[in-house]
Amino acid sequence: MTVKTNDDIIRRFTRNVPEWRPRVTPVKLAEATQEQLDALQVTPSNTKVSDYVLVLAHDVETLKVRSPLFNAIMYGKGGLSRAERELGALAASIVNHCIYCAAVHADRHAQLSKDKTVTDKLFAMGEKADLGPRDRAILDFGMRLARTPQQATAQEVAKLREAGLDEGEILDLILSTALFSWANRLMHILGDPVRKSG
C-alpha cells in the first residue's frame, strides 16, 4: 500500500471522479451497530459501502434521513430535468470548491445532457463561463444562493422566469443547490479528493 501525501490531493476541477480520503476514521463495518447497518442499506450504493458513507454513519440518525431526502430531491419525478438539477448541484459545488462533488455531478450532467461542452466551459472559465441563457440563469441563481449569506434576489428569479423556468422547476433548482450546500459541507470538509490509486 502506498502512503498518500498532500501531493496526491486534487485541487482543480475535473470530470474524472477522484478517490475520497477521509480526514476522520470511518465506522468499521464489523463494529457497526444494528442501527448503523440498517442506515447503510438505504444508501444508493449498497453492494460496496464507501468510506464516505461509513464516515457519515457516525451520525446515523442524520444519515438515515439524508439518503432518502437526497434521492427525492435529485431523482424525484416531474419538475426540473435531471441534467438541470445537476447544474444546481454544480453551482454550489463550484462556489464551495468541492472538487469531488463537482466531478461526480459534472460527469452526470455530461451523461444526462449528452454534452460535455457546458462543464468543459465551466471548469475552464469558471463562474463567468459563456453559456446559453437558460444554463446561465440557472448557474447565476444557484451560485448566488450558495454563498453565505445567500445573495439571490428577485432579479435572478425574474431571469429564470425569462429563461422559461416555471415555479416547480425553480423550486427544484432551489432544492438541488440547497442540498449541495449541505453535501459540500460533508464531502469537502470531512475528506480530501485524491488521485485514484493503481
Binding site: 457516525h58 451520525d59 453565505t148 445567500q150 439571490a152 432544492l175 440547497a178 450546500s181 459541507r185 470538509i189
Partner: peptide, 21 residues
C-alpha cells in the same frame, strides 16, 4: 466531528431552502 459537520451542513440547506422559497 461528523455530528458537528452535519449540523452545519443541514442548516446550510434549510436556511437556503427558506430563503429561496
Amino acid at each position: 466531528i461528523v455530528r458537528l459537520a452535519e449540523l452545519n451542513a443541514f442548516l446550510a440547506y434549510q436556511l437556503r431552502l427558506i430563503a429561496g422559497l
